[in-house]
Design a protein around this nucleic acid. Structure first.
Lengths: 241, 241
DNA sequence: AATGTGTCAGTGGACGGACCAATTCATGCC
DNA sequence: GGCATGAATTGGTCCGTCCACTGACACATT
């Protein structure tokens, strides 16, 4: 149990289609493929990459869903945009060493969304936020961390901002944010502090005071970040860029 | 050629895997599948959906890349998060009637990134922005619109912000932004106005003055938005929600 | 009885081939 | 030259097969 198992760690098992996404990215760069240009036919790509068409098509489906390529039935595969080709948000977030970036992105998005929420919130939004606040109060009163109430509150704020695009983007970061949330709320006295911060935010939004809502959200998130960053230490081994 | 072909337009042509992504989203909701729960086996899903495993696996690859599910070899398919299941940024952006949201998201992201850029920019970033500015100047001097120079400049600012997550997000909106860019720059005298705005932004970033950089970027984007929104009119037919 | 080991059913991973459907393009007719 | 036509190209989907990984259960060992 005390032996160093690092030399025995399982070798890098990756999905074939993931590798293919990267390979296709390399292809775009190496051949200097321009936006709008056509890729070789699927059959040829599959052959040259040494994989089956089925596997290749999984990669193409991913790339199409990400908006990097366009696949026309009977026409061919075309490059729509090359910037960031092959980069998947989900992967970027997972990489260790990204915590500061995640927190920063979160602050930028949530502060902006809080500002919008203060402008656009309707009675339904207020009711949802109140409900989330009450839920978190109950959790905390019962000696819980209030994790789910915290998440509900922030989600309610996002919805009140009435911008489905930004909401979608922040949802993509939800997982990473969730981890920081747990860490932060595990700190002594943090749940109560967060509860108070939420009340400030809600009050500002309810008063339709965008600047105050933004400031309150920023202050709240800065507190959370401090805790997270204190606990966080860059892992030298994972520092791969 | 002048006949109304709309009643004859090809019937609902959608990729099978796209439908499957939606169907799986419905499945999650209808069965109230909880986060962490397992989906039925691929073979069963394929049978029940009336499609081949190959097609289903395209949909699963997309969902996995989006971070909605986790597929474990030999284990099964598990739900990672349900919020926004099946929603693809690329699709949301394309929908008509989303222009205001796109512009709003762009402003929020770019203003924040400009602020960060003013803090973190190094000599390389400054050089890149200068190069982009010079490029746009040349385009405009040659009676061009300066579209590519404009894009390069904004991209340089994004990079100077040094947050790959935010950069990735804004890249996802790049296409939609590109359209507004063309519209805006087509307006009389706009290229020169944009050029001046870019100089303001660059100056603020170069001076490491975040508030001024943010203000300059905001002012610039507001100008662009005004033009775009003036030209934009909600299409009643496409108002599908 | 506790523990280690082997086996096997279930499940995802990948492949190859076959056929269908949309597009493209050269061919030849007018 | 313009246009219809059909073959070649290329993506869309399905099927069956086999491999690799996981987890649980039965069995053997101690």
């Amino acid at each position: 149990m005390t032996v160093d198992t690092s030399p025995l760690r399982p070798l890098g098992r990756t999905r074939l289609y993931e590798d293919l996404v990267e390979r296709l990215g390399e292809f775009v760069i190496r051949t200097n493929l321009e936006v709008g240009a056509r890729f070789p036919p699927e059959r040829e790509l599959a052959t040259r990459l040494g994989v089956s068409r089925a596997s290749l098509r999984q990669a193409l489906a991913v790339l199409e869903a990400q908006g990097f390529i366009e696949v026309r039935h009977g026409g061919g595969v075309f490059l729509r945009r090359s910037r960031g080709f092959g980069g998947v948000l989900h992967k970027l977030v997972e990489r260790r060493g990204r915590l500061p970036e995640v927190l920063e992105a979160r602050e930028l998005l949530e502060v902006g969304l809080a500002e919008l929420a203060a402008t656009r919130r309707d009675e339904t939004d207020i009711a949802e936020m109140r409900r989330a606040l009450a839920g978190m109060e109950a959790e905390v009163a019962g000696a819980g961390l209030g994790v789910s109430g915290d998440a509900s509150f922030h989600h309610a704020v996002h919805r009140a901002g009435k911008n489905s695009l930004l909401e979608h983007v922040i949802d993509g970061l939800a997982e990473a944010i969730h981890e920081t949330r747990i860490e932060s709320l595990s700190e002594p006295d943090r749940p109560r502090a967060s509860l108070a911060a939420h009340r400030c935010i809600l009050d500002a939004i309810e008063s339709s005071d965008p600047p105050r809502a933004a400031a309150a959200m920023r202050a709240h998130l800065r507190q959370v970040s401090d805790v997270a960053l204190l606990r966080w230490e860059p892992s030298p081994a994972a520092d791969d860029d």
